[in-house]
Structure formats: structure tokens, C-alpha cells
Write a protein that binds this DNA or RNA. Sequence first.
DNA 1: GTCTATTACGTGTATATACACTATTATTGG
DNA 2: CCAATAATAGTGTATATACACGTAATAGAC
Lengths: 148, 148
Amino acid sequence: MPGSPPLRLSPADCTCFRIRSAARRVTQIYSRHLGPTGLKISQFSLLGFVAWEGPVSIGRLSELLATDRTTLTRNLKPLLDNALVARAPSDDRRRHDLVATPAGRALFKRAIPLWTAAEQEVRAAMGAKLTSELHGTLDRSMERLAAL
Amino acid sequence: MPGSPPLRLSPADCTCFRIRSAARRVTQIYSRHLGPTGLKISQFSLLGFVAWEGPVSIGRLSELLATDRTTLTRNLKPLLDNALVARAPSDDRRRHDLVATPAGRALFKRAIPLWTAAEQEVRAAMGAKLTSELHGTLDRSMERLAAL
DNA sequence: GTCTATTACGTGTATATACACTATTATTGG
DNA sequence: CCAATAATAGTGTATATACACGTAATAGAC
């Protein structure tokens, strides 16, 4: 089996540029829908994870969300300030477990239909086939890139 | 032809979360490689576009990069401060045309091999098939989402 | 030729992101 | 028990992102 020909790569072929552009575009659409709740899309995700995973540490969230630990510290601030999430002491005093407050859970529930509308707008524009292709491709890419 | 069954969407199916996670992951890899140049990946892209497109306005760059105009104003600051990009007056005094300086073009050239290494690391981890699938899916998604 | 609508751009504000560094608490080896 | 090590988290700094708003200059209407 012969080796592949040497690829001629140009910066126009940049995987990073493509994925960052798409992320910006998609983020704008979701943000528009979520506007009335006062939640940004990343806050929606973060609040959802905290609500689902029950008491959870920053470090654990960092794994679940594939986000740097210190980024989450900053991202949590608006949620803590607005009392949507609260810190709870844990047995290990190095950790601060995070829980969603009743207000946080209520807001998340109110946000779900708006998120659904955003998701449906995107899926309607892309079509079911492209949507599932995109999800599958991204999921597999994340698996392959996790090792790096 | 019957309609599709009503989709039951859960926030775990979020397209935005997937694409943002992947963008974060990919960005980290490229940033690591580009570190020695002092350029972030977005600066590499921006500098490259300015160098290629010759004298170009902020508004035009905004279309090319699918980035908000005001974001580019901020993103350009480090490049202007480091004299990698310069403003040139244009016939229309509302516009400030941007050009890459010799230092900017030289740095971009030095950065290309590092970008290539990043691109190859990502492609090696993902495989050629998944890479081309990802690119195609992202490109088609951007087309479909541009209308929104 | 002026007045107005449009175009092109920057600023204020707020969030998102992550690396290097620091501080605190647990754990483990002796 | 105590010192060294590991684990957990926050801060300082810098960039990335975009909406709402304000400003300056051009183009068009008349």
C-alpha cells in the first residue's frame, strides 16, 4: 500500500478557522433566542449541567464541559451573583460543590422552550441529514482529539 | 408522504454546545503550536486575511471572517500595537483600509510552518476521512446558516 | 446647494476563554 | 507525627466575542 501523497496545506484549509466561524454563527442564533431569559448560551449549558449533575465540583464540571477550570470560575460568577447557582460545602474542604438553586432550576425550565426554538431553527435551516452528520462528525472529532 | 414524527429534543442534543466544545478543543491545540510566534490562532487568521486581501476595510473583513465588525476592531488592536498591520487612508474617509506591514508579512510567513504542524496534528488524530467530513459538514452548515 | 438617510466605524459594557502563578487542603512516606 | 507530594481551586493578565449606542462622512432627494 503506497503512502498518501504529501498534502499541500494552505491556511485557507484551516480546520480551526472553520470550526470557530461556525461556532460564532451558531452562538449568535442561540443567543438571540435565549435573550429574554437573560441567559447566554454558555450559561444555559452550565446551569443545565449543574442542575442535572447535582452537587458537582468545578473540576468535574471542567471535564464534563471540556472547558478550562479557570474559565468556569469566571463563567459561574454571573450565575452565583444572580443566585441561580450556589456553593455548598463538601467533605473535602478543597472543593466547593455547586448546586442549582430553586430560582436557577425554575429559570432553566423557562429557558428550555426558547432553547428548543433555537435548536429547531438551526435544524430547519440545515435539514435533518446535515444536522445528524454535523453532530456525528463533531462527536467523533471530540473523541479523537481528547487524547491530544 | 407522512410528516416526520415530532422530535423530542433535550438540551443534551444541543448543536451549539457540541460545536462550541469542539471549537475550544481545537483552538487549544493550534494555540499551543503558535505560541512561539506570539500569535493567537485568531490573530493568525486575521493577519493572513489582511495580508492576502491587500488593503481591506473592517467591514469587508467582517464578511470574510464571519465576525462582528466591532469584534474585529478589538482583535486588530494587538496587531496594530505590534505594527504587524497598519491603517492606510482610503478615498472614502469613513473607511480605514488595513494592510499588513513588512514585519506582519514576515511573521505570518514564519508562523505558517507552525500552523501546518498544528493542522497536521489534528488531521493525524482525526484521520483523513473524518477531517474531510468535518470540513464539508461545517462548510455546508455555514452556507445554510448564513441566511438566518 | 442643502437636508436627510445611509453607510462605515469606534466605545461602553458584559461575558467567554485560558495560561501562568499562587494558596490551601488532603494524602502519603518515613 | 511530620515533611514532602498531590489535588483542588482562585487570581492576574490578555485576548475573543458581540450588542447597544454614538459619531462622522457619503450619497440621494429635492
